[in-house]
Design a protein around this nucleic acid. Sequence first.
DNA 1: CGAATTTGACCGGCGC
DNA 2: GCGCCGGTCAAATTCG
Length: 341
Amino acid sequence: MDEQWMIGQPSPTLSLGLNLGRPTARRAVTTKVLVEEDFMSVKKSHEVEALEAELRRVGEENRRLGEMLRALVAKYGELQGKVTGMMAAAAATQQHQSSTTSEGGSAASPSRKRVRSDSLETAGGNRNPSPPLAAAGSGQFAVTVAVGPDQTECTSVHEPSKRVRADECKPSRVSKSYVHADPADLSLVVKDGYQWRKYGQKVTKDNPCPRAYFRCSFAPGCPVKKKVQRSADDVTVLVATYEGDHNHGQPAAKHEGGKKSDASASAGASVRISPPAPVVQQLQHHHQQQQQQLKQEAAAEAERKNLAEQMAATLTRDPGFKAALVSALSGRILELTPSGQ
DNA sequence: CGAATTTGACCGGCGC
DNA sequence: GCGCCGGTCAAATTCG
């Protein structure tokens, strides 16, 4: 968490190094300026007091917010622990069930599409009413918190409260990864160590950002497909959906052929994702936590910038600050001006 | 020149 | 039956 920044850190925007009260540094000033400065110094003392009071107030507020944040984090951790416990219990129950009752639903899936849409709807989005326990593992909750309600996900996980059809989950496993990407970077490329060939792009109904379709081109017969789309909630987040299992090992991540895909891959999003389909749940959980952390850092950074901008705006609105800035700058300019001119 | 990407067309499933 | 929508194909284009 980034609360350290909020709590008691000297504001970077205040360290402008202006040296507001530095009359000795000024040489060669006109009388008019001197008169203005005398007037201003009286005025300034009041303003400085007011500013200090304001600063104290803001600092106090900052401290309170920091405490609230800490409490929130503590509660979050507590909740996460509870959820993890619940998930473990549910998983144990489900494991027990699957060992006692044979997975009866051996009905072959009617069609390829049906299998896909079924598994995808389970995996991505909560357009369909799904049980709240559909997300398995605390990491997914973390992702939900970080990305937004639309991104609730279940990555090829057996849901305890749902009848599980093994034949639907096994053959084409679906896993989802959230990758933080530069919003300026329009390429829907997720660098994950594999080699992908793009075979389509489509704008979908529920998201204005196009969805790109990739096939694994590392091995000729590799059935793995990947869909990449920017999150509707946060365009800096790329949502990569992997389908199927690779029939080959993971290639070396550094240079994969030197073709365009390689170049685009290296230019794409920073990878914080798990290996696609044959992924171990815990590993994915770990990666999702990393992604969440990344998102939080990005949010904190944005907040920081916003705060800095607000402070800058407040300061620039303040005529006293402007006057002080002008006098400081003029003094500095005069200082730097060669005496010969 | 070959391989990868782009993009409009087409196909099949699904809901009304 | 029809229209919508997601997924895929394949010709055209781009790029190294």
